[in-house]
Simulated scan of single mutants.
Amino acid sequence: MFDVGEYVVHQNTGHTGRVIGYGHQILNGVYVTTLKVLVHDAEIIGRRGAIEEDLYSAWIECQISNNSLF
C-alpha cells in the first residue's frame, strides 16, 4: 500500500503525482481500494491541480532522484 505523500505513476496514462488519500469503488459487486492522486502533469492534460482517483492496482511507485520530476 502506498503512503500519503509518496509519488506514483499511472501504468496506463503515464501521469505522475503524489498520493493525497484513499477511496473505494464497488466494481462488479466487489469493494476495491482506490488512490487519490494530485496529478503533477495536470497542466499538460488541461486540468490544473487535478485530482485523479483510480484503482490502487493501476499505480506503481515512482522513483525520484533529487525531485527531478518537479
Score class of each variant (00 low, 15 high):
residue 33 T to I: 11
residue 57 S to R: 12
residue 13 T to S: 11
residue 13 T to W: 10
residue 8 V to W: 03
residue 57 S to F: 10
residue 27 L to N: 15
residue 3 D to M: 07
residue 7 Y to A: 04
residue 60 I to M: 14
residue 34 T to E: 05
residue 6 E to V: 10
residue 61 E to A: 10
residue 67 N to L: 08
residue 32 V to W: 04
residue 7 Y to W: 02
residue 40 H to W: 14
residue 58 A to S: 08
residue 29 G to P: 10
residue 39 V to N: 05
residue 58 A to V: 07
residue 3 D to F: 02
residue 22 Y to A: 03
residue 62 C to N: 04
residue 31 Y to A: 09
residue 10 H to T: 11
residue 61 E to Q: 04
residue 10 H to R: 04
residue 8 V to K: 04
residue 33 T to F: 00
residue 39 V to T: 09
residue 37 V to N: 00
residue 34 T to F: 02
residue 20 I to G: 02
residue 13 T to N: 06
residue 21 G to I: 03
residue 5 G to F: 13
residue 48 R to Q: 13
residue 33 T to N: 06
residue 33 T to Q: 09
residue 60 I to P: 00
residue 44 I to D: 00
residue 28 N to Y: 13
residue 60 I to Q: 14
residue 40 H to G: 10
residue 3 D to K: 10
residue 69 L to Q: 13
residue 37 V to S: 00
residue 40 H to D: 13
residue 66 N to Q: 10
residue 57 S to M: 10
residue 19 V to S: 05
residue 51 I to P: 05
residue 54 D to Q: 08
residue 20 I to M: 08
residue 27 L to K: 15
residue 16 T to S: 12
residue 64 I to H: 12
residue 19 V to Q: 03
residue 34 T to C: 07
residue 52 E to A: 06
residue 51 I to K: 11
residue 51 I to A: 00
residue 64 I to M: 13
residue 22 Y to W: 08
residue 25 Q to S: 11
residue 29 G to K: 14
residue 1 M to R: 07
residue 32 V to A: 08
residue 34 T to M: 07
residue 70 F to P: 01
residue 37 V to T: 04
residue 57 S to T: 15
residue 56 Y to E: 10
residue 38 L to T: 00
residue 6 E to L: 00
residue 36 K to V: 06
residue 10 H to L: 03
residue 9 V to T: 12
residue 48 R to I: 10
residue 29 G to M: 15
residue 2 F to W: 06
residue 10 H to F: 07
residue 54 D to S: 06
residue 3 D to N: 08
residue 67 N to D: 11
residue 66 N to F: 10
residue 40 H to C: 11
residue 2 F to M: 02
residue 1 M to D: 07
residue 7 Y to V: 08
residue 36 K to Y: 03
residue 41 D to S: 08
residue 24 H to N: 02
residue 45 I to N: 07
residue 56 Y to H: 12
residue 27 L to E: 15
residue 64 I to E: 14
residue 62 C to M: 13
residue 26 I to M: 01
residue 6 E to I: 09
residue 18 R to Q: 15
residue 21 G to Y: 04
residue 19 V to G: 00
residue 6 E to W: 01
residue 4 V to D: 03
residue 51 I to Q: 12
residue 21 G to E: 07
residue 11 Q to W: 01
residue 65 S to I: 15
residue 16 T to H: 14
residue 11 Q to E: 08
residue 35 L to K: 01
residue 4 V to G: 02
residue 41 D to G: 05
residue 14 G to A: 11
residue 2 F to T: 04
residue 24 H to V: 00
residue 29 G to Y: 08
residue 45 I to P: 01
residue 31 Y to H: 12
residue 60 I to E: 14
residue 20 I to R: 09
residue 43 E to R: 04
